[in-house]
């Protein structure tokens, strides 16, 4: 999937990925896609949960070996 901005959360455990996502999303312009790279398996469930709580669009998660790439489209400030 194509992304505009990438956030590296490699090796970080819960709750650090969602804290970093919350901080990073502020820098993302509305309409652009944030890519989150994580090795925490919890991200598969936490990223959609975070998106629904924060009103952002969850585009999906791709898995390559032990690394997950999650995609969030910023739809509101």
């Amino acid at each position: 999937m194509k992304a505009d901005i990438t956030l590296d959360c490699y090796g970080l455990l819960c709750p650090m990925p969602i804290i970093k996502i919350t901080q990073k999303i502020k820098e993302v312009p509305v309409g652009q896609v944030l890519e989150v790279i994580s090795t925490d398996e919890g991200i598969k469930s936490d990223l959609p949960a975070w998106c629904s709580s924060n009103g952002q669009e969850f585009l999906g998660i791709e898995q390559e070996d032990d690394t997950y790439k999650g995609y969030v489209k910023k739809i509101k400030d």
């Binding site: 819960c14 709750p15 804290i19 919350t22 949960a49 975070w50 924060n54």
Partner: peptide, 9 residues
Amino acid sequence: ILSTGAVTM
């Protein structure tokens, strides 16, 4: 973990 996570939600 719960309190900091809560802020993000």
